[in-house]
Simulated scan of single mutants.
Amino acid sequence: MSPRPPQRRGRPAPRQRQARGASVVGRRFEAVVGPVAHGGHCIVRVTVDPSAEPVETRVVFTRHAIPGERVVLELTEGTEGDRFWRGDVVEVLEASPDRVEPPCPYARPGRCGGCDFQHVDLGRQRALKAEVVAEQLRRLAGLDVPVTVEAVEGDLPEQLAGLRWRTRQQYVRLPDGSRGLRKHRSREVVVIDDCRIAHPEAREPRPGTATEQVAGPTSTQAFEVAADGFWQVHPGAPRVLVETVLGLLEPRAGESVLDLYAGVGLFARFLGEAVGETGRVAAVEGDPTAAGHAATNCPGAEVTAGGVDEVLAAAYDGHWDLVVLDPPREGARRPVVEQVVARTPRAVAYVACDPAALARDVAVFAEHGYRLTTLRAFDLFPMTHHVECVALLERVPSS
């Protein structure tokens, strides 16, 4: 995902759900863990009242679990009338062969909520993420797509183990000078001495401007970014995303390209090189600061600051050969997708950090004659449930 303003990446406190009866927090159940689900947990179905007719059961979205394990889970959220509950594994009775000791002492039930999968072997983590992407595409887009989540090279040997990759890290500063991170779905802070996924040179957000170097297919370019704005936190992410987008689109000299949700112009810069002086590149970004950086970073590109749906309703109409979509977590959504297909691009590269949003938008593209022809997925956030996808959508020739 290309650079974008930090407000789109914040982690708000969970919305307080209306109580539907007495709290069930603290109740324990023994159960077998079901499949992985989107969001960093597994589905466990527990029997609430075996004497009821029919037997009363409830789904529990359970963290620190691995499919197939027999565990004891403790409920952490929910009331008697809720359709589902949330919980944590507090005892493993029959462990998966893929269970490992978490490398971080804070990656435990009731402690830091930043990592979802430290208890899982790194290879199995990627397999679980692939299952989630495939399931979302199957359920929301009606597509049966094989998915492999690829490792991404970093700049440190520890990153081979999924550690020390996070180059930007924001801590909670406490009155006594210590620092901490928040518990899962909570504002409560856990004091920590070292975040194991943080890069040794990780920077905290601060006012000002920073420079990031990105090696593209034919050149290395410097990008001006807001030091407190969004930039990919895995050191290998910008390069692999640029290479993948350009490799899938295969831009040609003289073509026209729309880069939507362009951030500071990561893709627009290299697309401009690919289409050359006879081509045309336009970048649209909602955050004015990021758009200003894009104008500096992308000489020759047309940069517009504004909401993508609003800008497309008023400008850049007519045919465009290629489109890059790199929306925030909620996806592009129907109004933007329909604006894109109205420009009849031969191909669209969709960069997605949320597989559910990707699947919903892919379904809208399909309504308008565009099919998913290639999908690549990258493990840019090891130890967490997050996964980055790049999808190629191409127009189906009319018969």
Rank of each mutant, 00 (worst) to 15 (best):
P3A: 06
P3I: 05
P3C: 10
R4M: 01
Q7P: 07
A13K: 13
Q16A: 12
A22S: 12
V24R: 10
R28G: 11
F29N: 05
G34L: 06
P35Q: 13
H41N: 11
V48D: 03
D49R: 10
P50M: 06
P54H: 02
R58V: 12
V59F: 14
R63I: 01
E69M: 05
R70W: 10
V72P: 00
G81A: 08
R83T: 14
R83G: 15
R86S: 07
D88R: 09
V89T: 02
V90K: 04
E94V: 10
E101A: 09
C112L: 10
D116G: 02
D116V: 04
V120N: 09
V120H: 07
L128Q: 04
L128R: 07
K129H: 10
A130G: 02
V133K: 10
R139E: 13
A141T: 06
D144A: 08
V147Y: 01
G154E: 15
D155W: 06
E158R: 03
E158I: 07
Q159N: 12
T167I: 13
V172A: 08
V172W: 05
D176S: 00
G177D: 15
S178P: 03
R179Y: 01
R182E: 00
K183A: 15
K183E: 07
V190N: 08
D193I: 14
C195L: 09
I197W: 02
A198K: 10
P200L: 13
E201N: 14
G208I: 02
G208W: 12
T211Y: 09
Q213G: 14
V214Q: 09
A227I: 09
P235C: 14
G236K: 06
G236W: 14
V242S: 08
V245W: 05
L246H: 13
D259R: 00
L260F: 12
A262T: 00
G265W: 02
L266S: 03
F267Q: 10
R269A: 10
G272R: 11
G276W: 13
A283P: 13
A283E: 13
E285A: 12
P288V: 01
T289Q: 14
T289L: 06
A290P: 00
A305M: 06
A305E: 01
V311F: 07
L312V: 02
A315C: 12
V324F: 02
D326E: 08
P328R: 10
R329E: 04
G331E: 04
A332D: 07
A332N: 00
A332R: 00
R334E: 00
V337C: 02
V337Y: 12
R346E: 05
A347M: 03
V351N: 03
A352D: 09
D354I: 10
L358G: 02
R360M: 13
D361P: 02
V364Q: 06
F365Y: 05
L372E: 04
F378I: 06
P382F: 02
M383D: 09
V387W: 01
V390M: 08
E394W: 05
V396A: 12
